[in-house]
Design a protein around this nucleic acid. Sequence first.
DNA 1: GTCTATAAGATGATAGAC
DNA 2: GTCTATCATCTTATAGAC
Lengths: 189, 189
Amino acid sequence: MGTDTRTQILDIAERLLQQRGYNAFSYQDIADELGIRKASLHYHFATKAALGAAIAVRHGARVGAALQHIDGLDISIWQRLDLFFEPFLMLAKSCNLMCVGGVLAAESSTLPVSMQTHMGAFFTRIHAWLTQTLEAGRADGHLTFDVDPAVKANTIIATLEGLILISKAHSSTDFIDPVIADIKASLGA
Amino acid sequence: MGTDTRTQILDIAERLLQQRGYNAFSYQDIADELGIRKASLHYHFATKAALGAAIAVRHGARVGAALQHIDGLDISIWQRLDLFFEPFLMLAKSCNLMCVGGVLAAESSTLPVSMQTHMGAFFTRIHAWLTQTLEAGRADGHLTFDVDPAVKANTIIATLEGLILISKAHSSTDFIDPVIADIKASLGA
DNA sequence: GTCTATAAGATGATAGAC
DNA sequence: GTCTATCATCTTATAGAC
C-alpha cells in the first residue's frame, strides 16, 4: 500500500478512538500496530492533542463531504435518509465502535479545547443538514410530522447516537432495525 | 456530616466518573477532594476496579429502587413517565454530567469485566421496566402507539441517552424539552 | 483508618544520532 | 523519517509505622 505514514497513523488512531475513547489509547498502542517506535510518531503529530484535533478535522471533512454527496444525488427523501442513517447503523451493529462525534461528546470535558470546538461544529453541521432535509421532505409532501424540523432533527440524532451507545449494553443487535423503523414511522413511513 | 468515608469516596468517585469517565479520573483526584492521602483510599477500595464495580452496583440498586418507588405510587401513566424522564433531563440540562449507565456503555471495552456486567444488567432492568410500563399504559388506553412496546422502550432509552450526549455538543439547552415533548407525542400525548 | 515511603509501570514528550 | 536514549510526571498499588 502506498498510504503515507501520516494517514496510517490517523487511521489507526481514529479506530482506537472509536474502540476505547481518547483517554484510553496511547502513542505506544499506535506504534505497536504500525511497527515503528512511539518517538517517531511525534515527527508526524507533535502532541497527542494535535493528533486528536487532526482526527476531528478529518472526520468533520468526511461527514461534510458525505452530506454534500447525498445532496447531489437525484434520489427520494427516504433514500436520502437511509444514506444518512447507514453509518450510525453500521456502528450500532458493530457493538464495539463508538461514533467519532459521540465519543468526543462523551469525553468532551477531558479533551483539548480544539477537539471540543471541532466536535461542536460537527454536530452543528449534521443538525443543520438534517433539519433542512426534513423540512424539504415535508414541504414536498413525502414526510409527515408535526413538530419543528429542528426539533425532529435533534430527536433523530439523539436516538441514533443513543442507539450506538446502548448497542454496547445489549447482547443482541436485533433491536436496532426496529428502532430505525420506529424513527421512520415518526416521519410518516 | 456523619457520612462515612467509604460513602464519601463513592460519592466523589461517582461524580468524577460522570464528569470525566472511568479512564480520566484517578485516586489522586479523589484524595485531593476528600483531604486524605491516596494510599488511604486503598483501605476502603483495594483496587480501582473494585471502586468502579461498587459505583456500578450502588447505581444499579438506586435505579432499581427508584423504579420500584414509581411502581408503588398511585399516579397516572404520564406522571410515571415524567418521573422516569426526570433524571435524564437533569443530566442533559447539566451539560457536563454523563449518565452513569451511558458513560459505562461508552467506555465499555476498556472497563473491568465486573463493571461491564453491572452495566449490562442496568440497561436490561430499565428496558424491562419501561417496556412493561408502556405496555400497561397502552392496555388501559392512556397511551397510543403501534410498535412493539419493547421496541418503543429501546427507542425512548436511546433518545434519552443520546440527548445527554448531544447536550455536551450544543451551547444551549433549549432543545431538550421539545425533544421530550416529541417523545411523548409518539406515545399519544 | 490514616499516614509516609516506595515501588513498578505507563504516559506524553524531547534531544540528538543516523 | 526513524532510531535510541532519556525525561518528568502520573498511575495503581503495597509495606509498614502510628
